[in-house]
């Protein structure tokens, strides 16, 4: 039983890692007043570009860095439509997701061709922080990116709540007119937020390909981006609560894959769908108290 729990905790952290990255990314976007539905495609592009760069360069960290830059590019593209032009954020976000997904599939075929064998790389190794402790050793035997994700939570909290940039970010998502009156460029600030957000989403996607799988498959992201959109509401746009949301989803996901092995006579698909069902329930419960950034979805036009 003890082993089982330790195993679940360790798996939860692994599953939560890409969600933490991407949800923190979405946090930057939405705090600035932009709903970025490009998240799913940006993660997919991160997974693809990270894998392709790692495969071509032979360095996994070059892969992560490429995914980061690719994500920034995607965020910047989103800013062109949602910030500069003030296009409907739902449609432009989905457009970005469709575009980044298409570019990834296209790029993958151009680089790797139509080979029947799935191209693969040797993924990241897990690092053990407490090699001598049986319990902590098992739990904290994780990928470097998982440690980075956890470390990012307090960093993002500090940026959002304790820096000038964070103050401006929060105010531009609540009241862009006032922010503008205070002499801050609303367009630039929102663009920066989207670029930072995109970078985090890209790294979250790269985790899946260069750490977890060591390859790139077409179903690699599988709706995780949409889960992040739900998580950010669940977390009430607060970095610390993002951690709890990601861990909750991660634990359900980890639990379902272990429950499948226990031989309970239910279709395994039910367990696979469980995290998504739990997300809808959590969203429904949390939704009542959600305090959306006041200017979310509203394009800003300078009078």
């Amino acid at each position: 039983m003890g082993d089982f729990i330790i195993d679940i905790i360790a798996a939860t952290l692994r599953v939560a890692t890409p969600l933490i990255f991407a949800t923190l990314g979405e946090l930057f976007c939405e705090r600035a007043g932009i709903l970025n539905l490009g998240i799913e495609g940006t993660m997919f592009f991160g997974a693809f570009s990270g894998f392709a760069a790692a495969s071509l360069s032979g360095s996994l960290w070059v892969g992560v860095l490429t995914a980061l830059v690719g994500g920034m590019l995607s965020g910047w593209l989103m800013s062109l439509f949602s910030v500069r032009l003030g296009v409907n954020q739902h449609v432009s976000g989905l457009g970005i997701t469709l575009l980044m997904t298409a570019l990834s599939l296209f790029g993958f075929r151009v680089i790797f061709g139509e080979s029947r064998v799935l191209p693969s790389i040797t993924p990241f190794k897990q690092l053990s922080i407490f090699p001598n402790s049986p319990v902590l050793g098992e739990i904290f035997s994780q990928y470097a990116l998982t440690y980075i994700a956890i470390a990012l939570i307090p960093i993002v909290w500090w940026v959002v709540y304790r820096t000038n940039f964070g103050l401006n970010l929060r105010s531009v998502g609540d009241n862009p007119e006032a922010t503008d009156a205070a002499g801050i460029n609303v367009y630039n600030l929102r663009t920066i937020a989207l670029v930072i957000g995109g970078a985090l989403m890209g790294v979250g996607g790269a985790f899946l390909s260069v750490a977890q799988l060591g390859s790139f498959t077409f179903g690699i992201v599988a709706g995780r981006g949409w889960v992040c959109i739900a998580l950010i509401i669940f977390a009430n746009w607060h970095p610390i609560k993002v951690l709890w949301g990601a861990l909750l989803f991660g634990s359900v996901q980890a639990l379902q894959s272990r429950l499948q092995l226990t031989g309970i006579k239910l279709p395994y698909e039910l367990f696979l769908a469980l995290p998504y069902i739990v997300t809808i329930i959590a969203l429904t419960l949390a939704g009542r108290n959600a305090s959306y950034p006041a200017a979310l979805l509203k394009p800003y036009k300078r009078e």
């Binding site: 709706g223 959109i229 039910l270 998504y276």
Partner: peptide, 20 residues
């Protein structure tokens, strides 16, 4: 009834039916 964002839930329902 509960003002839950439909964008998120309809997207999640897409994932769920594929498992179904």
């Amino acid at each position: 009834k509960l003002k839950v964002d439909e964008v998120v839930t309809t997207l999640l329902m897409n994932s769920i039916i594929m498992y179904f």
